[in-house]
Design a protein around this nucleic acid. Structure first.
Lengths: 352, 352
DNA sequence: GTGAAAGCGCTAACAC
DNA sequence: GTGTTAGCGCTTTCAC
């Protein structure tokens, strides 16, 4: 392969404008100590020559790399892609991340990393050494993997932990799971439901617990019971089948169920169907995530929309331009919304 | 921000192994002229120190950047992401591209570029200058934008044109549209259909024409008519409504329709429903793309699966390791498959 | 086979 | 305000 060199470098610009390299550099980086007239002249040369700084060279001389690395779980991500079930978590990350990065002259790069693995450190360390990102976005379940957070902290790389509210290095961020869960619960309470079940997520996701809190609190405020109405799944379809089954087996079975993932909601829909329960007539159903599929089910599902794009966008901004007045790393919360569709309705009249 | 430096550099390794920088470099790049014993010693130091070469530095000194840039149409991509209709084109690209890149120590980076725009060259030129990718993957409608292909050729950057069979610089690749279209048509012919309509895509996508060819040819071989049975859409839902309407308005209306995109197939399904036609009893329907949604419609759609992941994966390989025996840039074709679901059935008996 | 020297494009540090 | 110098981590010459 031919040795490719930069066609237009800072030198060309400097020569063209009749100034030193340093002055050009200052203009590029919008630094002070350049007279407006000078700046204009240099800018003119830049435009005319079509000069664009080489990121590699910039990074080399100790400046930024202009790269933000988003880290996803390898197995989960690949499984989602292969399954082709319309989960658009990655797309929403790109939507929020790429556009916001672009606005600041950055790029976002997705990196797949195994969490459940003893060489996370090596894997991540290699990615960091190779790419030297200016910031890293951690998604669950990486967000609370201390091997990862410690490594990042040690290397002095700013990072955001999506779905983590813990103290510690990095920006803690959440999508308001407690709030969202309460929102869904209140929606059901307003519809007259008094027995509202929750199919929670696995314990290694902090957000599972937050959703339980929101649900429990909303029920408490309304004087409704939560005992027996909590089951757990692993976000997957099969686990949803089991959990929904248990809930509907109860003597005083719930008239509404909140599922902590779309797949578990789909499973609940199926279990209900098999038992001759019509949704929403006999059973109301609220799903979490609001991925594309839930609009194509019968009925379309009322769902909590996770503001993934908005959250990642916010994370990018915080990484690129850390606020001056950082009041001690307060967690950043971007709350979701409830999208009401056809799977929730007035509670069935009590005939038990 | 603290000036971040590489923690372990080639110097450390050289010192540790007691050799020159050059020897370490040779080992890293698997170059000849290193005695096995020497190589082993250096490799041991590399492993022990956990050394990983800096891509920026490698790129600086004229070597590779280890980056493959995939270029998508900005507006189309963002619209898809915003719509959240489950189109997973980008995900499939990532699936095929990232994994294959990773296998070779490369990264894939997605770049959004406006095609229908007079400053494509500046936009793309900037991305290339900043990132210096070792290869570029063009997707429609960029693949046949001569402003782009010429720029890439001029800069000597290897690139693949997905969905383009034209001669010229860059690797021409297609997903076998003509073959796939014939496949779908033959499937319908085997089911006894004699009037098979096609809703083709817009003319600025070459693949639209290829699909027409495949359909026409399969019909011709079976001695069936194609006149009047061709309509065009723009891949979008609304255009599908119009096209399906026209086809079903015909005196001798088709008993089967092939739609050149999932959205247009969905539209056809809707039009059929509105006219009291049951799919597949009264009308068989085949869709193109096989994106996640088509499994959730009623009935689930028989669809041509576009092998996006496989094609991108192949493109990456060809860009990274161009085959020695390149016989003059033959187009590379990765054919799709027909996934038979519930929307195709035996042709209705003729009672007209 | 191995090593030494030069330089890639840029910025930090320090002169002036 | 602006220019000069040194050096980032690596690979490419070209010696030996």
């Amino acid at each position: 392969m031919a040795r490719r060199r930069q066609s237009v470098t800072i030198k060309h610009v400097a020569a063209d404008a009749g100034v030193s390299l340093q002055t050009v550099s200052r203009v590029i980086n919008n630094e002070p100590n350049v007279r407006p007239a000078m700046k204009e002249r240099v800018q003119a040369s830049i435009d005319r020559l079509g000069y664009v700084p080489s990121i590699a060279a910039q990074r080399m001389s100790g400046s930024r790399s202009y790269i933000i690395m988003a880290i996803n779980d390898r197995d989960l991500t690949i499984a989602d892609w292969r399954a082709r079930e319309g989960r658009d978590w990655v797309d929403q990350m790109l939507l929020g991340g790429m556009l916001t990065c672009a606005k600041h002259g950055y790029r976002m790069l997705i990196e797949l990393v195994d969490t459940h693995n003893d060489h996370v450190e090596r894997e991540l360390g290699a990615a960091i050494a190779a790419l030297q990102p200016d910031g890293v976005i951690l998604t669950p379940p990486h967000s609370e993997n201390s091997l990862i957070t410690r490594l990042l902290a040690k290397r002095g790389i700013p990072f955001a932990r999506i779905g983590s509210m813990q103290d510690g290095p990095g920006i803690a961020m959440s999508m308001g799971d407690e709030h969202n869960s309460a929102l869904a619960t209140k929606h059901l309470i307003e519809l007259g439901h008094e027995r509202i079940g929750l199919i929670a997520g696995p314990t290694d996701f902090s957000l599972s617990q937050w959703r339980i809190e929101g649900w429990r609190q909303a029920l408490g405020e309304a004087g409704l019971p939560h005992e027996n109405y909590l089951e757990r799944g692993d976000f997957g379809f099969e686990s949803g089948i089991a959990a929904a089954g248990k809930l509907l087996d109860l003597d005083e079975a719930p008239t509404a169920i909140i599922a902590s993932s779309d797949q578990m909601a789909l499973a609940t829909l199926e279990v209900a169907g098999k038992r001759g329960l019509s949704v929403p007539r006999d059973l109301s159903l609220v799903s979490f995530d609001n991925s594309p599929i839930v609009r194509f089910t019968r009925p379309p599902l009322t769902a909590v929309d996770q503001p993934i794009a908005a959250t990642i966008s916010r994370a990018v901004e915080l990484l690129i331009e850390p606020p001056e007045d950082n009041p001690g790393h307060e967690p950043v919360i971007v709350e979701g919304e409830l999208v009401v569709r056809g799977s929730t309705a007035t509670a069935p009249r009590r005939d038990g």
